[in-house]
Amino acid sequence: MDGFVETPAGAVPRVKTTMTGRDRCGTVKARTGIARTNYKVIPGLYCVGTPGPESPVIVTANYKLSFDALRKELAGIDAWILVVDTRGINVWCAAGKGTFSTEEVAFQVKATHLAEVVSHRELILPQLAATGVAAYELKKKCGFRGVFGPIQAAHIPRFLRNGKQADETMRAVTFTLRERLALVPVEIWLLWKLLLIVLLVIFVLSGIDPDVYSLAATWTRGSAAAVATLLAILAGAMATPILLPWIPGRQFWLKGMQVGALTGIAAVLLSSGRTNIIGDLGLWVWTVVITSYLAMNFTGSTPYTSLSGVEKEMRRGLPLQIGGAALALVLWVAAPFIG
């Protein structure tokens, strides 16, 4: 917040185009998953610089990360920012879920009395909102026409300078190493509950041996299986996303199988002496299928996999992953009884 700008429709809060320490801290929390949801901005009209009736109106979602991504690119620009209520979800996901909709944009235009604030009748929408907002319907619903701006907020200054013309680079979605890295912490964080349950089961199962139950084995064998599980998480939720374009194949469960096969070898080497060959085989299969599943789950975070495609590959991958996990557990439990 940086004061207010008076308009015929009342005072409009002006926001800074720089990020404070608190903003950065919030970004880290949202990106790691510590406080990812409920990171919201109150919907309504805001502004940057000293906008007037002729200044452009840029529309965004009320997820704080989306709002920050936009305002920090607007240094030296006078503009209005219309924040619509997407329940704290980013532009693209909200458009997909139907909360960033034509109706919601029209509602906020009316609720903020935008027509009294600006003399023109044009909204700049993020291109990725197009999944939820029909530009041709906006005019009928609120009197403002919608123009799709660039995908990335960083391109907005250039878009405005070019007379609101977007070139091909502004219109094509990317999935750079940096963008993939930003997703990794949340991918891992979302697993912690499941991981706790899995680790508990693993330690309990690891104790079963010919003397009915061995507490020593719970630790020695259990830790080997726990290490394999953690390696599989790193392989599926970190290594696969990072190496994505370089791993052969197109289906994610197959990409995960390859990364998992190599990671499984590491798990077996690390377990040296804690189990026998049967147990090692179990560890390897376990690492492969867990990695494969997590790699497959990453499809939900990419900007290029179709839902139909994901369903198709899951019908192939999931039976193998479930079968593999069952086989791994059988081998693991059977190992102390054989050889």
Partner: peptide
């Protein structure tokens, strides 16, 4: 969504497309 004459059909199922 943005076709004014509904000349395009896309799989209408939404959802983020993760395995879960």
């Amino acid at each position: 969504r943005n076709c004014p004459v509904a000349a395009i059909y896309v799989n209408p199922d939404d959802g983020c497309g993760c395995a879960a």
